[in-house]
Amino acid sequence: MDDMRIGFPASLACGVVLVAGCSFSFSAGGNAVQRTTVEQQVGDQLAAKVGQRPKAVVCPDDLKAEQGATTRCQLEANDGSKLGLTATVTSVNGSDVNFDIQVDNK
């Protein structure tokens, strides 16, 4: 068990490089991507890249559907360690919104 708790943050850190370049596309259905959608997609991508889902991903706000718009979120590993991340809109095409995520190094 201890190996898993220690291993997850290391895996998470390795996954940062992989996730940082990921782009997500969603229909915004208005002028923003709902925070719950951002949270879900971040968790899904981390699970796919590092093989474990974070304990939680929490974003305080929706992500505005405007190129360059950002929202800061926090992810929590299963061992309780926390990392910040930024979701940034890279393009908007009608109701489709593309965004990248960048997980903090520390």
Rank of each mutant, 00 (worst) to 15 (best):
A28D: 14
F24Y: 07
L63K: 03
E66V: 14
V17F: 11
G21C: 09
K64W: 03
S11G: 05
G30T: 14
S95I: 04
V103G: 00
N105Y: 12
Q102S: 12
G21Y: 07
I101G: 04
S95Q: 10
V33Q: 00
V58R: 11
L18D: 09
D79C: 12
Q52F: 14
K55S: 14
T70V: 15
D61W: 06
A32C: 03
A13D: 11
T71G: 03
G21M: 09
S91N: 15
F26C: 06
A13G: 08
G68M: 09
A48Y: 04
G29C: 08
Q45M: 13
A69G: 01
V19D: 06
C22P: 03
G43A: 15
E66C: 01
D79G: 00
Q41G: 03
G15T: 02
L85K: 02
K64P: 13
A32L: 04
C22S: 15
I101L: 11
Q67Y: 00
L12S: 13
C14Y: 10
V50P: 08
D96F: 05
D100H: 05
Q52V: 15
N78L: 05
I101Y: 12
L18F: 10
N105S: 06
M1H: 08
V58S: 15
G68T: 08
R72K: 11
A87Q: 03
D96L: 08
Q102D: 11
L18E: 07
G15K: 05
S23K: 08
D96E: 14
R72G: 02
A87H: 02
M1T: 10
P60K: 11
L83W: 15
C73E: 04
G94T: 11
A32Q: 10
V38N: 00
T36C: 01
S95D: 15
V50S: 11
A65M: 01
D44V: 02
Q34N: 11
V50N: 09
I101Q: 07
A69W: 06
D79V: 06
V17K: 10
D96N: 13
Q74C: 00
S27N: 06
